[in-house]
Design a binder for these strands. Structure first.
Length: 260
DNA sequence: AAACGTGGCAACCGCCCCCCG
DNA sequence: ACGGGGGGCGGTTGCCACGTT
């Protein structure tokens, strides 16, 4: 007895979205906000699966999505973050304002992976993500734990390192405008383990990960503007995480750090 | 001009986690 | 404490545009 499908396939329209469907979805979300994806299609008058609606909105219709080519600085950041995070497209997208995980994934698969291979850079193939890789128990085994609130209280503040929160920045802007529940519910911890770093991440021979700045104080909501300084800071931020694995330092949610 | 090959990307699929009752 | 549902995520598919022969 498997779980029920997210929606009945009968009578559901699939394939490319029409402009009318886009208009219906956009109009509904502008009036009622995001969420309740399962019931949204019916309420919005769409013959679509809720998941399809969510995907269409997240990847295409959201007003804060940046259009146009990915610039060299963004490309550089994607490469660096992929080196650290592997195929964690949503995490990577969270650090690229206006870009979606799907867009970055596609860009990687169609451009960057080939480009890097062409340049003779070694890309270690991603291995299948271990089951329950997000579980904290696994992370603890690896000696790297990005804590929940309990851990934060018990932690050693001297060695505290803040984990960048895997937040989709553009979504946060939307959330703040609409003050929806996602804001308070977005306590997603960045759940990483040493195992994940090394088994999933690509590996390039030109990156310099020896530079770390432990005094970083990134703003939680990054400015929309992108410049090389910001990109460098982002990379440093993730480099801290990487380095922390070596030093066996407990990690803390950056969000929670603001509450200290 | 037609056939074929290739690349890019929107959309779908299915697994998994987390929240809530 | 537990189970089910909703939502998020990464992997994959398939269509279409464009280039090449």
């Amino acid at each position: 007895m498997g779980r029920s499908p997210c929606c009945s396939k009968v009578g559901i329209h699939r394939g490319p979205w029409t402009s009318r469907e886009d208009a219906l979805l956009t109009s509904y979300i502008q009036n009622h906000g995001e969420g309740n994806w399962r019931s949204l299609p019916k309420l919005a008058g769409l013959l679509r699966c809720g998941k399809s609606c969510r995907l269409r909105w997240m990847n295409y219709l959201r007003p804060d999505i940046k259009r146009g080519n990915i610039g060299p600085e963004e490309e550089d950041l994607i490469i660096r973050l992929h080196r650290l995070l592997g195929n964690r497209w949503s995490l990577i997208a969270g650090r690229l304002p206006g870009r979606t995980d799907n867009e970055i994934k596609n860009y990687w698969n169609s451009h960057l992976s080939k480009k890097l291979k062409k340049q003779g850079l070694v890309i270690r193939e991603a291995t299948p993500r271990p089951k329950h890789s997000k579980s904290s128990s696994n992370n603890k085994k690896q000696g790297v734990h990005i804590s929940n609130q309990t851990e934060m209280v018990r932690g050693n503040n001297e060695n505290k390192i803040y984990a960048p929160k895997p937040t989709r920045l553009t979504a946060r802007i939307h959330v703040m405008e609409n003050s929806s529940e996602e804001e308070k519910g977005s306590s997603d911890e960045m759940e990483l383990s040493a195992n994940n770093y090394w088994s999933d991440g690509g590996e390039y021979d030109f990156l310099d990960t020896d530079q770390f700045n432990l005094d970083l104080g990134l703003d939680q909501v990054l400015p929309v503007q992108q410049d090389s300084v910001m990109l460098e800071r982002l990379f440093d931020e993730y480099s801290q995480l990487l380095q922390s694995e070596v030093n066996d330092i407990n990690l803390f949610s950056y969000d929670q750090s603001l509450m200290v």
